[in-house]
């Protein structure tokens, strides 16, 4: 799951940075000439900098291969189910709220008044997809449910005093 990967990656790097700062802080009271330190660590920086750039490039390319904006390629005879989603203060209107596992779905999300956020949650309340619901524009989310169950739609963009009450339920069956 993406959230777990993100959390663990962040944790690893954050801990790494913490150790480096702690290490330097501990070594700070020792006193040495600056010039040799500078020379040595400037050299190290070139190496470190290049490594970091290369690392980031790889991650960038890897994570940009598949973007949630791209329409998936549908197989022959497999037409996506198009669901019109309208947000309004403070509720959701979906043209359809029951789906089948494996059904290719496109949520076409828009809003009648202010900005809202269309967040899809599974039964364990983990987010599985989202997009913004904007007035005058239609954002699209592509999704195929893999598990049956009751899914939730939660508002993810602050839209007024009942923002937290703006929920909706979707049923997915086998």
């Amino acid at each position: 799951m993406i959230q777990t990967v993100a959390w663990i990656t962040s944790l690893v790097f954050m801990l790494l940075i913490t150790f480096i700062f702690l290490f330097v802080a501990m070594k700070s009271t020792e006193k040495r000439e600056y010039e040799p330190i500078k020379k040595k660590w400037y050299k190290a920086r070139t190496f470190y900098g290049i490594t970091l750039v290369v690392f980031m490039l790889i991650i960038t390319i890897y994570t940009l291969r598949e973007l949630p904006y791209d329409q998936p390629v549908y197989g022959k005879g497999e037409d996506p189910t198009i669901v019109e989603v309208e947000a309004l203060q403070f509720g959701w209107e979906l043209s359809q709220s029951e789906f089948k596992v494996g059904e290719a779905i496109e949520f076409h999300v828009s809003s009648q008044d202010v900005n809202h956020g269309f967040g899809l949650y599974d039964e364990e309340m983990n987010m599985i997809a989202q997009t913004q619901a904007m007035p005058e524009y239609t954002n699209v989310v592509y999704l195929t449910f893999t598990e049956p169950g009751t899914y939730g739609v939660l508002c993810l963009e602050y839209c007024g005093l009942a923002h937290h009450a703006m929920t909706y339920q979707i049923t997915v069956t086998n």
Partner: peptide, 16 residues
């Protein structure tokens, strides 16, 4: 991490 589009897809506007 959050600026990564695929991560943002499930973390944008969460408390992250």
């Amino acid at each position: 991490i959050d600026a990564t589009i695929v991560v943002n897809h499930v973390m944008h506007n969460t408390k992250w």
